[in-house]
Computed example of a mutant assay.
Amino acid sequence: MTQFQVLDIQELIHLAPDRVWELLTDWVAAPQWMPGVDSMEPEQLTSPGALLDYRSGAHERQLLIKELREGHAVTLSSGGGDINVLYGYELLAESGQTRVRLTISVEAAEELREEVGELVAAIADSEAATLKSLRSYAESAP
């Protein structure tokens, strides 16, 4: 598998890290800030290996919680087989506020290198405002 970097962005959210973590991992509320997600439901508690079922348009899909550092970082994995997309969220405390970093990468079989270019561009375009949406949602959440 070859890994292709898609996006590496950051956003400062004017809330404490524990509150941002709570909102980030409220999977049922994810459609309020996560692009392309119409509904989401966890199959288990937030833990490594847990599955998140989500609907995007007419498609039902799953995200896997691949890695978790409670309160600090979570990596979600989508796909499988020859192509896998990894979404990494990391929270960093900054003067009582939270800097959130989102890194997205695509893992693909070497023979799919040519096809991955279009996928990488489409993901980068659709996810570019994700953290701005998260900030807007988090700062207005009750």
Results as ranks from 00 to 15, higher is better:
47 S>L: 14
47 S>W: 06
72 H>V: 11
44 Q>H: 14
50 A>R: 04
67 E>N: 06
75 T>P: 01
59 H>P: 00
70 E>R: 10
71 G>N: 10
35 P>Q: 08
55 R>G: 03
45 L>E: 15
65 I>D: 02
66 K>L: 07
71 G>A: 13
57 G>W: 05
36 G>A: 14
79 G>K: 02
40 M>C: 12
69 R>S: 07
66 K>C: 03
40 M>L: 07
49 G>E: 08
67 E>P: 02
35 P>D: 13
34 M>P: 00
64 L>S: 06
68 L>K: 03
59 H>I: 08
54 Y>F: 15
72 H>R: 14
71 G>D: 10
50 A>Q: 08
61 R>M: 10
45 L>I: 13
63 L>A: 07
39 S>K: 09
48 P>N: 08
70 E>H: 13
51 L>V: 06
35 P>M: 11
79 G>Y: 03
47 S>Q: 14
74 V>H: 00
60 E>I: 05
65 I>E: 01
49 G>C: 10
53 D>S: 12
55 R>N: 13
70 E>V: 14
52 L>F: 13
69 R>E: 07
62 Q>L: 04
69 R>K: 14
63 L>F: 13
58 A>N: 09
74 V>L: 03
52 L>C: 10
66 K>T: 00
65 I>Y: 00
76 L>S: 00
57 G>M: 03
49 G>S: 08
46 T>M: 12
79 G>L: 02
58 A>V: 09
34 M>G: 00
79 G>W: 04
36 G>W: 09
34 M>I: 03
55 R>K: 14
69 R>V: 15
43 E>Q: 10
60 E>V: 10
51 L>C: 06
49 G>N: 12
42 P>V: 13
55 R>S: 05
53 D>F: 06
51 L>F: 15
53 D>V: 11
66 K>Y: 07
61 R>Q: 12
47 S>P: 01
76 L>H: 02
38 D>P: 04
61 R>W: 04
59 H>R: 14
37 V>T: 11
66 K>N: 06
37 V>S: 03
73 A>C: 01
57 G>E: 05
50 A>T: 04
47 S>I: 14
73 A>K: 00
70 E>D: 08
65 I>T: 07
60 E>C: 08
76 L>G: 01
39 S>P: 03
61 R>A: 11
58 A>T: 07
65 I>K: 03
71 G>Y: 11
60 E>D: 11
57 G>H: 09
75 T>F: 05
69 R>I: 09
73 A>G: 01
58 A>I: 10
57 G>F: 06
37 V>H: 01
61 R>C: 07
53 D>Q: 10
59 H>F: 14
38 D>S: 12
47 S>K: 15
62 Q>E: 08
57 G>P: 01
71 G>F: 13
56 S>E: 05
77 S>D: 02
64 L>T: 11
41 E>H: 15
47 S>R: 15
38 D>G: 06
46 T>A: 13
47 S>G: 04
